[in-house]
Amino acid sequence: MEGTRIESRPSARAFAGRDRAGRSHARIAWERFRRHRLAMLGLVLLGLLTLMAVAAPVIAPYGPDEQDLFNITAPPSRAHWLGTDELGRDVLTRVMYGGRVSLAVGLAAALISSLLGVVVGAVAGFYGGWVDAALMRFIDLMLAFPALFFLLVLFTIVPASVANVVLFLGLFGWMWLARVIRGEILALKELEFIDAARAIGASSGRIIVQHLLPNVVAAIIVSTTLSMAYNMIAEATLDFLGFGVPPNVPTWGNMLTGAANYYIQVPLLPVAPGAVLVLAILAVNFIGDGLRDALDPFTEW
């Protein structure tokens, strides 16, 4: 997963000579990001999908559970633009509502992972010694877990609600970021500006939050984005295996699962939810790649 970096494109090198004086880091990053065509495409796509999901109750032509029993597994028509599913529910409506859960679960779980990763990584890197050793062993332990198996076992114990899916995906996704943050902080804390901060009497907490974390923001943002994409796939997979969000809740994963049982009779049924899911994940990955290039101070352009 790591190390798959996209080289800066030759067309973008024209930007290298431009004067950077007087512009903030965020501004420079945004200008680089804007030149990343795929990332901008991803941003637009994700924006549209989010808009569609948020506005679902207003713009959806039907209710998410509304059944049209005279039109079961109907092909696309004027009344049902994307057809109806095996229970006569409007596919377009459910795709819209499904985005609410799928996108929210992906983002929320990614935020939990990032928060945990930052806290554990910063504490381990800053305090070092036995704290570091203990936390690193714990990370080794977490990484040795066959996560998918363990998630499945967990969901036979706790009820599989949206909140639980978010929580457990978050709890199993923070280890890599923690390692990265720890490594960076380990190196950063030896620099002079940290000595200076300490000399003027800043507390450890203040040094971590005010002086160290701003220097690792790039890693945090990129990791959050990529883990959002990963979590959306994981959520759909859990749905498919029957251990995710309850099957009556419209999510893209649940729609695919329902469609999977009828796809021989109705081959078009898995296409729409699958396509939006893949599009959303593609969009998030594009944004992640663009952010990685834009935030990396060592990229030339």
């Binding site: 994409a229 796939i233 997979t237 994963g253 898995p270 899911l277």
Partner: peptide
Amino acid sequence: AFFGLAMPVFWFGLMLQL
């Protein structure tokens, strides 16, 4: 590669079956 990484494995399997 981008598509391969964005597709849930089970969906890809279903499409192959189909």
